[in-house]
Write a protein that binds this DNA or RNA. Sequence first.
DNA 1: CCGCTGATTTAAGTCAACTTAAAATTTCCT
DNA 2: AGGAAATTTTAAGTTGACTTAAATCAGCGG
Lengths: 239, 239
Amino acid sequence: MSDLPIKPLRIDAAANYIDAIYRLTEGRDEAATTNALAEELGITSAGVSIMIKRLAAQGLVDLTPYEGVKLTAEGLRRALRIIRRHRILEIFLVNILGFGWHETHPRARALERVIDDAFEDRMDEILGHPTRCPHGNPIPTRDGQLLPLTDVALTSVEPGTSGTISRVTTDDADELKYLSSLGLALDLPVRLVEIAPFDGPVAADLNGRTVHLGPRLADSIRINVHENARGAARREAAG
Amino acid sequence: MSDLPIKPLRIDAAANYIDAIYRLTEGRDEAATTNALAEELGITSAGVSIMIKRLAAQGLVDLTPYEGVKLTAEGLRRALRIIRRHRILEIFLVNILGFGWHETHPRARALERVIDDAFEDRMDEILGHPTRCPHGNPIPTRDGQLLPLTDVALTSVEPGTSGTISRVTTDDADELKYLSSLGLALDLPVRLVEIAPFDGPVAADLNGRTVHLGPRLADSIRINVHENARGAARREAAG
DNA sequence: CCGCTGATTTAAGTCAACTTAAAATTTCCT
DNA sequence: AGGAAATTTTAAGTTGACTTAAATCAGCGG
Ligand SMILES: [Mn+2]
Ligand SMILES: [Mn+2]
Ligand SMILES: [Mn+2]
Ligand SMILES: [Mn+2]
């Protein structure tokens, strides 16, 4: 009497690993270690070790024992499909459903694994084909193209360098809530004032107001350096 | 580095059974049989038999061996929470995402088990607190209240009786698509013309046009009989 | 080069939710 | 009522994704 039964009650675990591996290795070219994955997924390293062997057998990751895993081309392709869904969902949760940017990540994680292509396409269209998530991360195209990131960590530039907030890399709800309570938002002008030594606080001029952040939290802030200010930033890259 | 890991990769199976039991027993007061559940869930009867015993142990169903199961008060409460989500999601898929009424059911089934209360509340608010799904089924309130149904099967009234389409009980995408291709939609005026004998076709006047439906499909159409038409039909029958 | 430490892998076992095959029970038909 | 057919339950086994405990390996400090 009903149509296709919704059979798979257990969700594709491989996708979960692929997704986690992507997040852990995004940007840098390293392999994801067993321990890091275990931490990220909330399971034991032993479990991860077993599972990544299966992923390797399926051709989704390259596994170097005692080293870690990297996504294969196919693994990356799948990861980017999930990442796209995740980021579109986050925008959807904010723009359409009215959630705050600190309320999107776990919800998008839960939804990203059950929606289909049509759902993704509808959201994309309704949202006007967004190019980044509420936290500034770029959204891959449907065929897996991804704009290269041009931003740098706020904590990596010379004091005095100014730019605009491009991205926030934390997913933690409390941290995000705190940041927005400070008035921080994407695309705001920002200038690094100083970084106190010995893991000290980071002072930044945010849209005219000075804020002081713990070094770990400040690390999660990415900025696009202003053209005219770039000279100051370049010294960092060289040094 | 991330917040709470999305641990439960396996979805609450009990909820799936509860939901199926509710759908199978909605309206009528019978118990859901093992076989019917197996069919609905797409698993073997043996599997269902084992599982409903666990549900009974959890106090979610009353099980009479070789008879079937009924939801307990607690089971019903949980079912209504899921049904509410399902129906709100269906409306959301139609009104916000632009899907057709034949494209909602499996998607809503997939989503209903991963969204949380806040998500449900946002949808409800955005949709203006809808009271029925795209197929006419009433949406329970958050505390489990459900308006009693007052409609009857199109095939159960006397020829000549008129009313308005209140509900369509099939979930099948092709059937739904076919019905809307005939111009059928909720709240349209309809009048039963005749039911041919020997499981023959059902003729109905739909908003001025006469349509002919197979008996099974016609059975899935529910109508609210017009007040004035009710007397007329009855007089006709009496006279 | 040795041995310690922490990271990783293997081994063995658990668990929920299934499966198939066989046994039990109810229903239906003559 | 009596026996076949259908339905339901039990028994036993499978699967994926874990777990804990034990074994193995890599990097380093001396
Ligand atoms: Mn996210
Ligand atoms: Mn994001
Ligand atoms: Mn439905
Ligand atoms: Mn519906």
